[in-house]
Design a protein around this nucleic acid. Sequence first.
DNA 1: TAGATTGTTAATCGATTAACAATC
DNA 2: TAGATTGTTAATCGATTAACAATC
Lengths: 218, 218
Amino acid sequence: MSSNASPILNHENISEATINRLSLYSRLLATLALEGVTVVSSKELSERTDFTATQIRRDLAYFGQFGKRGIGYEVAALKGAVDKILGVHVPRKVALIGVGNLGSALLGYRVLREHNFEIVAAFDNDSDKWDRTINNVVIQNIEELPETVQSKQIEIGIIAVPLHAAQNALNCLVAAGVKAVLNFAPAHLTVPRHIKLRNVDLSIELEGLSYFLQHQVP
Amino acid sequence: MSSNASPILNHENISEATINRLSLYSRLLATLALEGVTVVSSKELSERTDFTATQIRRDLAYFGQFGKRGIGYEVAALKGAVDKILGVHVPRKVALIGVGNLGSALLGYRVLREHNFEIVAAFDNDSDKWDRTINNVVIQNIEELPETVQSKQIEIGIIAVPLHAAQNALNCLVAAGVKAVLNFAPAHLTVPRHIKLRNVDLSIELEGLSYFLQHQVP
DNA sequence: TAGATTGTTAATCGATTAACAATC
DNA sequence: TAGATTGTTAATCGATTAACAATC
């Protein structure tokens, strides 16, 4: 009745590339479900992605056996399994550091909510902003961060401060006890090993495009 | 006088990982220059990044010889060389597809300008928006895209439309002749091989954090 | 049963790292 | 010269792919 067969093994060594691909599989499976597809083979999945059928089967096999030989994968069940592996259904509480243009936008950003990330506290070092409310979140003094992380059981920090303030924001978050950080500042930040840092860094994307355009054969 | 020794070899097979690291080197070198550092060794660079000294020397060696044995690298010269490899100084013209919240924000976004990406045309399929001007860019009917790409020598498309319209936007851009695309829609898009597609996909970052939190040893 | 497709092993490929000769 | 550090080769490591037995 409850969740079935597939025991999600906690292999230590799943590569980040594999996890990123799982994200794409989840999205593709959602699309297929909308199209009314109920069963899909690794070959069909590969035709709609950049990945080989073998790689897809390999990625899934790290976590269990989800298919039927000779048949393929049941779309809904596989989507459920992948989402469970990713842990996307577990709600996560977030502290936002920096309530400027970007930070304010993030407070109302649907994609965060859709992934069960809830911003439950926001901080800024501009005292004029303290006690103002955006999207039901009160802006606080950064000094209150440790206590708030504790009392609200916050696991994640989002950095939306200017470049020069980013490393300090990160240090505050780590000291306050968050476990993971999403960084929007275009800065190279240093984190202790037990903290997961993910960068949303437009600069890298733009420079990647520049390189491609510069070096393509005309 | 003009640019010196380092002939930037157009190796076919530089990995994307290497290019992404070059971006970070560029940023780190900028920081070092601000700090007044004029010469730096690969060992010192490695201490301020996640990368080993060997890997840094290896990455640079793909493109030429930039250091002095026994000494290290001259910060300003190396930054110049890396930026030249990345092609960041070459101005690029951009067409924006989708002038909603995100698209409007991108029209005024400094990071694009700082990387010499100039949005010179914007398109939307809402006819109410046509002929309105944002940041000196007139919003056009998407049907005018091919002609505009041609006449304005646009190389890059930015997709800022809702999920369901993203693949169509991409198809239009490719048909119009752009060479590279930056996609902000959280969609898995299909491109011909000769087009470079880079995704700014918050979903992947969020799901990566979810996975980490779900599977970390407590 | 015959055909299809998975899950997995073994082979290959590519990227990282260690080691070191060249040289400042 | 002695010490330091690069650029590069060879060894290692890890990730992808090919091949195939298991099985629906």
